[in-house]
Amino acid sequence: MTVSAERQTPRADCTAGPDGGITFDLDLRRGEAGETPELLLRLRGAKRTGGRGNTLRLPLSPLGGGRLRAVLPGTAAPAEGRWDVYVREPGADDDAAVAVEPGIRDVRLLMDRTPETGRIAVRIPYPTVDGRLAVRCWVRSPHAEAGPVTFDGGQMTVEGTLYGTRLGDDARVEARLTGAPDRVCRVPVAGKEGTFSFTLPLDRLSPGPVTEQQLWMLWLLPGTGAGEPADGVRISRILDDVWDRKNSFVYPGRSAGEGIRAIPCYSADNDLCVRLVPDPVQAR
């Protein structure tokens, strides 16, 4: 690939739309005329088995001035996960594709989204820790979007919006301990007209001592009368421009019993959870 002397790798400016579409404008500074390359999106962690399902190929069209454009339409159906972005020259093997650097990312239209359908498709372009461009994709149907999280003593109250289903008379929320499927804490959930709310007493998560970190994931079960999904609906926050809430959305820790501290937070996949850790101050 021939690129400018100033830049050794291609760079892409991205514009994200509220429908899940993304426009990629690439500056390749190609020094020779020839066939136009393609943009390749590869699902991270997927086996490279020829491209079905784990590779998206987007044609690049000339814009002039050495720039090319590719469009990921909102109607595309990439799997949920993280997709790394590459440029592949015509005739080259996929393994020879060149990683793309992130340029300007316009994600303003992702803020304050109110989807009109039960199927939620979110795509957020973002820079990786090693300086490459990637796209975080979520596909949820139905979906429980977490909203305000408030506290009253040792209780956590969560409000949110429910898409693609409704609450039945026996709707509830389950906190499930990661790695221990038999450890479940259930609380009732209320709501109307597409909303939900529940209050979780944090001291109910662990009836005994906590000697190492525990991670409790929160799921909403809409109720049998609502055509409930078999595993429930993961409570997450994905309808904005934040691709990874793990380290930026952590609530202050609170007592969850003697020697136990509960820290509500989000996972790297933006799923709402509660982390229990030994409290050295209380344990003295």
Rank of each mutant, 00 (worst) to 15 (best):
L215H: 14
L200H: 05
L110S: 04
V274S: 00
Y251G: 02
R275M: 15
L40D: 08
A46Q: 05
R82G: 09
R30L: 07
E159C: 04
A262Y: 05
R82S: 14
D203M: 01
V100R: 03
W216K: 12
R176Q: 12
T36H: 11
P10F: 03
G160T: 10
N270F: 01
R261V: 03
R42G: 01
V71K: 10
A226W: 00
R42D: 05
G81M: 10
V189A: 15
R105E: 10
G194N: 08
A16T: 07
D271M: 10
R82E: 12
P201F: 06
T199I: 07
K246S: 09
E193F: 15
D170W: 04
R42W: 06
I238F: 01
W138A: 01
P148N: 13
T55Q: 14
E80W: 09
E101K: 06
G118Q: 08
K47Q: 14
D106G: 02
V158W: 13
Y163E: 08
A268M: 14
I22T: 02
G31P: 04
R140A: 06
D25H: 04
S267F: 08
T49I: 14
C185Y: 03
A121C: 07
R119H: 13
T178L: 11
A5R: 15
T128A: 02
R30G: 03
G50M: 14
D182G: 02
E80R: 14
V277R: 13
R108W: 05
D84T: 04
G257P: 02
V100C: 08
G154P: 05
E258W: 06
L167Y: 04
G45T: 03
G160E: 07
V173N: 04
R57D: 03
I260P: 00
T199D: 09
G91M: 00
G53A: 04
T211L: 12
D106N: 14
D95N: 13
G257M: 05
A230N: 11
A5G: 13
L39S: 04
D240C: 10
I120K: 01
D94V: 07
R186G: 08
R57L: 08
S4M: 02
G179P: 06
R67N: 08
V274L: 02
D169V: 11
R7K: 12
R113H: 08
A96Y: 02
F151L: 12
V242Q: 10
M111K: 10
A96Q: 13
V135D: 01
K47G: 12
D130V: 10
V233C: 00
A97M: 09
P252R: 15
